[in-house]
Amino acid sequence: MDVNTDLAMWSNQLIVSAMIVYAIAMIAYAFDLFGGRELKQSEVTSAESKPLSVRRTSRKTATAVLDAPDTATGGSDDTGSDDAASRHGAERARRAARVGTSLLVLAALLHVAAVLTRALSVMRVPWGNMMEYILTATAITVVVYLIVNIRKDVRYLGTFVAGGVLLSLGLSITVFYTPAAQLIPALQSYWIAIHVPIAILSTALLYISAILAVFQILKARYEDRAPKWLRFTKRLPASTDIERVSYTIAAVGFITWTFTLIAGAIWAEVAWSRYWGWDSKEIWTFVVWVVYAAYLHARATRGWGPTKVAVLNLIGIASVIFNFTVVNVYFNGLHSYSGL
C-alpha cells in the first residue's frame, strides 16, 4: 500500500553506513576525552590553577567556531598564563576531537539522508512507530549537539552522543525494526506533525542535558577529591560551567516537554474524547514533567547542592527513557503505536 520499497531499502542501508561512521567518530572522541595522558603538564596546571572566577570570560573565545579550544584549557586573556605554546599544545591534543566532529558531521548527513529516504518511501512524517521515532530522535540529538557546539565547545560530550546514537540506532534496526508502511488510523492526524516532533526534540535536549549532568557530577567530584580515575575530567570546563549549560538545555527541554504534554492532551481529546484519562503514557509523561519541575525547583532551593540537583536531572532522563521503552512495549494502553 503506497510504499516505495527501494527507498525504504536505501534508508536501511544509510542507517547502517551512518552507524559505521558513528562508531569511528565515537572512538575518535573517546581518544580525545580519555587519552589525556599526552596532555602537557603546563596546560594542566594552567587549567587547574586558574581561579574559578575566570571561567566566564573564557567563554567568549569558545564562541562561534566548532573547533575552538576547550574552555578550561583555552584562552584566558586576563591571567596572563596563556602562553602561545600551551594553547598550541591544547589545540594539537584535540586533534582527535576535531576528527570526531568531522566524522560526526558526516554520519549526521548519512543519518539525515536515512530519515529523508524513509519519509519519502512512505510520503509521510518519519515517526510513525518506535523504529522511526528512534531514527529521527537520534538524528535530532546529533543536530542539537552540533548546534550547541557552535555556541559553546561541548565536544567532551561527543563520545556519549555518538555512543548513545549508535546504540539506539542498533536497537532501532533490530529489536524495534518495523518495515516501512502507512500509518494506522489512530495516527492519521495533523497532530502527529505537532506533538511528536516536539516530543523528539525534548528527548534530544533532555538527553544532552543529562550527559552534561553526568560530566558535571564527575567533574565536581574531581574538583573535590581528585581521584585518579577521574583524571580525564581535567579537560572539562569547571563543573559550575557544565552545570549552567546542562541547566539551560534542560530548561528548553522542559518547555518543549510541557508543549508536548499539552499538545498530547489536545490530541487525546480529538482521538479519545477526553484530554486526560491517566492512560499509562499520560501517567509517565506527567511523571517526567513533575520530575523536571522538581529539578528546576531544586536548583533554586537552598540546601540542594549542584550534584543533588544533577541527580534529579538523571532521574528525569531515566523516566523519559522508561516512558519510551517499557511503557510503549510492556504497558497496555491506548497509546500503542510501537509497531512491534
Binding site: 500500500m1 510504499v3 518495523t178 518495515p179 516501512a180 508502511a181 502507512q182 500509518l183 494506522i184 488510523p185
Partner: peptide, 14 residues
C-alpha cells in the same frame, strides 16, 4: 494493509 511485510501486515489503514 495487505502489502507490507512483518508486523505491518494486516494493520488497519482506513
Amino acid at each position: 494493509d495487505a502489502d507490507s511485510p512483518g508486523a505491518q501486515f494486516g494493520q488497519p489503514r482506513v
